[in-house]
Simulated scan of single mutants.
Amino acid sequence: MSLIKDELFENIFTHAHGGIAIVSLEGKWVKVNKSICELFGYSEEELYSLSFQELTHRDDLDADLESMTYLIEGDVDSYQVEKRYFHKKGHVIWVLLSVSIVRDLDNNPLYFISQIVDISAQKSANWHLQFLMNVVKGQNEKLNDFARIATHDIRTHVGNLGSITEFLEEDIVTIIDNDNYKMLKESILNLDETIEHLNSIRLDKPKKFNSLNELNLSDYVKKAMYNISAIAKKEQCQIINHVDKDVMVLGIEAYLDSIILNFITNAIKYKSPNRDPIIEISTSTKGAFVILNIKDNGQGIDLEKNQQKLFTLNGTFHKHHDSRGVGLYITKNHIESIGGKIEVESKVGEGTCFYIYLLKA
């Protein structure tokens, strides 16, 4: 039976996937398995002539020796630590080291049993993630600074434009009846309102889905249509609004403004060169969602070719001088941040329909 146990132990020790080693109380490698040799790049003979102290990164050595002392003195039964070793070729290896101690019948320490798992890949991934998080944090700080400056400076310009309209009304009494002037004045008011919404987002903590505002979808569609009325007129675009006036959704004011405006302006921007643009806006319901459908008769999108990059940053699929691949990316993030989602159907040469799922109020 003893022979069988010895053979079983030898097989487990030799063929274990992880590194297993028997280490003397002085730190010499007494017995190592194949995984240990592969991990450090040394042969068995080479390792037996070395101590673990010689392979340990100096910044980790004191902590390791201190833990070993606790183990020898019986203060702990085992310990586990992340530490660094040096490979034979010189590079650093990060490992998860688990150490226990074997004692004789009189409780005197005999040797250590060490289990060593290579975690270099995980460490590298963690460092990469931390680096990216630091980059994102820096970018967010820059964006906050930009938003702070932008909302302040643009509001100043909006105030100035408002004053100019007042001067024009004083100097040209009949201008208030001019349709183009009416659109200009209304657009200035809408711009001021949008800046107010953006500023409130910048100052407030991020909202949760259950603290979103109840918004009348029809009002926001009408507002978006009015804001681009001059563009629609110039491009001879017909916008057909079938949205029921009583449809209520949950959202954030500035986000809903931006979402609707982006899809309508894109529909005009990517109109077909062979016909006047027509945009149909309607709604339907599905479970907890109100679906805002924005359908156009424009160029269409080759979804088979562009599906994967449709909502990605810098993803463009039309040759237009204003295409930056940013609008849809930001819009998708806005939709998802208020608990919604987006789907699309399109056919090249016929047009596109975006289905925007918004939480029902």
Rank of each mutant, 00 (worst) to 15 (best):
K269D: 02
Q122V: 07
L191K: 03
L256W: 00
Y111T: 07
A361D: 08
F209S: 13
N190Q: 09
D64R: 03
L189G: 08
D322G: 10
V23L: 06
I330G: 03
H15C: 11
I268R: 01
G159T: 05
G339K: 06
V136N: 07
G41S: 05
N107H: 14
F40K: 00
K5R: 10
D257W: 00
G162M: 11
I268Q: 04
M225K: 07
D179M: 15
Q53C: 14
F209D: 10
Q115D: 09
S35R: 03
N227Y: 07
K341C: 12
Y329K: 08
K233I: 12
V102S: 09
I113L: 09
W94S: 06
W127I: 15
F146C: 04
G162F: 06
L303M: 13
R324E: 15
L55I: 05
G27P: 02
D177Y: 15
S124D: 07
N11F: 13
L65C: 14
G298P: 02
I231D: 13
A224S: 14
L303Q: 10
L3I: 13
S200R: 08
S67Y: 13
A224T: 03
T265D: 14
G315I: 02
D219Q: 11
H157C: 15
D59W: 07
N333Q: 09
A267D: 03
L143S: 06
S2K: 06
T352P: 03
I36L: 04
E66K: 15
I101C: 10
C237I: 10
L168P: 01
H152W: 08
V95A: 04
T352C: 11
N160V: 11
V136Y: 08
H91M: 09
H87P: 08
R275P: 02
Q307C: 09
D192W: 01
A254M: 12
V117E: 07
L168N: 05
L71T: 01
M133T: 03
K182L: 13
Q122H: 05
V99M: 04
G287R: 11
H157Q: 13
Y357H: 10
E7D: 12
F9I: 10
L313S: 08
N134I: 11
F40D: 00
E350I: 05
V348A: 06
T151I: 15
I172W: 10
K88D: 09
Q53I: 12
I36C: 02
V348R: 01
H87K: 11
L256M: 14
F263V: 07
H321T: 14
L65R: 13
K83D: 02
I154M: 13
I301C: 03
F317Q: 05
D244G: 06
V348S: 04
Y85S: 03
S187F: 10
F354V: 11
D296C: 13
S35D: 02
T165R: 03
M1D: 09
S282L: 12
T69Q: 15
C37K: 04
W127K: 09
S78H: 08
A224K: 01
I291F: 01
L358A: 01
L65M: 15
S323L: 12
A230S: 10
I195D: 02
L198M: 12
K295R: 08
L256G: 01
V249M: 05
F112M: 11
I278P: 00
N314V: 10
A125K: 12
I260V: 15
D6Y: 07
H128I: 05
F13S: 05
F86P: 00
A21K: 01
I175M: 11
I268H: 02
